[in-house]
Design a protein around this nucleic acid. Structure first.
Lengths: 221, 221
DNA sequence: CGCGTATTCAATAGATTACTTGAATAATAG
DNA sequence: CTATTATTCAAGTAATCTATTGAATACGCG
């Protein structure tokens, strides 16, 4: 028989490099942001609160293991996720965390009401209900992200404008809000606000990256 | 609106702890071994080649983030994976690695022939073919692992006994070999040996942990 | 061309991690 | 009870990782 030790070790050592890439909260936040679409270094630094140089270094690490790819456009470098496998990996990590790191669940559930978390709409059911006109889908992400891709038929009201633009939403029809993913908190706030104003609102179970992952269609523009 | 910074950061920091747990080749090897079933510390130390104290420390880290659980039995501590989410996470990591860390693919494909890698049988198709008696499923793992759970109808011939016990296998029927998972190399060797002896042999695409994950049935004993 | 902006590189100090060694705990066997 | 085995704990050193700082590179603009 052949010598098993070397290639096996080498495989695990390479996988461990990916593990290392996932071992920093900043890098995970970067991955979540990049799951929305391309972004520049400066922009990412602003969103995460880290310095530009530090953000660049984290991005390099993610790039080295192939989780993200960079594209030079004029003087900017635009980064994006390397592919769907990365979304799947990120999602698995979140699932494992929710299941076993009880802290995470506790934090989320303490910060918001447990009720909100339970009354989510699975993405799979949503699409047909939208087609039948039974629900209004509300995308609370910034306009640029909406333009880059959104759930078909969704209305875009960024979270900061929601209070001011409440009149645009139907008072009787059910509203399903979504944002970036299961750890994106904007849709929690949206549902909270809408309910306070007497509207029927729920959260979509996942965000747009998971929607895409599930092979469901998106519209652009 | 509420203060987003804290809970979100806290979530990512907790997920990063899981990432850290995945950032060591030794720990990944331990996870792969534990994907087969319960094992003691000493046993794991022997299999990985690390010292007992070191193995114990790695196991502690995996336990701290909830990926594995320990059970005390007499003077032994038996560890096992905490649940299916861990298998899913491990699998996602492997997929991401295969897709983006070209090293891994290269190592695997260089070490074995590319042909072997392509001619795999998807687990989903296998079960019905077994029922119809069209294929013989060969489990080349050690007997203890076989006893802890195996594909229904599978024949167990540990890889080291394969050469000696070749006569037990049908010469005309197709043989599908499997072992622990996509990075378990025993089934590669088995297929290699069987083909050299003129038998029709292929590898199952994944191993038993993935089989279990897919919700397919297993037999014990 | 020179200037401003975006990004990366290089060097550094502080924190974290890995593995070893030797001792401590826990449970069984004689 | 003592000896033995399995596991964990504690301490120490070498190595690695993080975030900061300041400089270097690359590109577009006027």
């Amino acid at each position: 028989m052949s010598n098993h030790v070397n290639p096996k070790r080498a495989v695990f050592e390479n996988l461990a490099r990916i593990g290392t890439a996932l071992s920093s909260a900043v890098r995970l936040e970067l991955l979540e942001l990049l799951a929305q679409g391309e972004r520049g270094v400066d922009e990412l630094a602003g969103l995460t609160g880290a310095s530009v140089a530090n953000t660049s270094q984290h991005l390099q690490k993610l790039k080295q293991v192939g989780l993200i790819v960079g594209r030079k456009e004029a003087q900017y470098v635009k980064y994006r996720l390397a592919g769907d496998e990365v979304v799947a990996l990120f999602h698995s990590l979140g699932m494992a965390g929710q299941a076993y790191l009880t802290d995470i669940e506790r934090i989320v559930r303490l910060y918001f009401t447990a009720k909100d978390d339970l009354e989510t709409v699975p993405a799979s059911e949503l699409l047909e209900r939208v087609k039948k006109g039974l629900v209004t889908v509300l995308d609370v992400r910034p306009s640029e992200e909406f333009a880059a891709g959104h759930v078909p038929g969704a209305v875009n009201i960024p979270i900061h404008e929601l209070q001011r633009r409440l009149a645009e939403l139907p008072r009787r029809k059910e509203i399903v809000a979504y944002c970036r993913g299961p750890y994106c908190l904007m849709s929690y706030d949206a549902v909270h606000l809408l309910r306070k104003r007497g509207l029927k609102a729920r959260r979509m179970a996942d965000g747009l990256p998971e929607w895409r992952m599930a092979g469901l269609p998106t519209d652009v523009g």
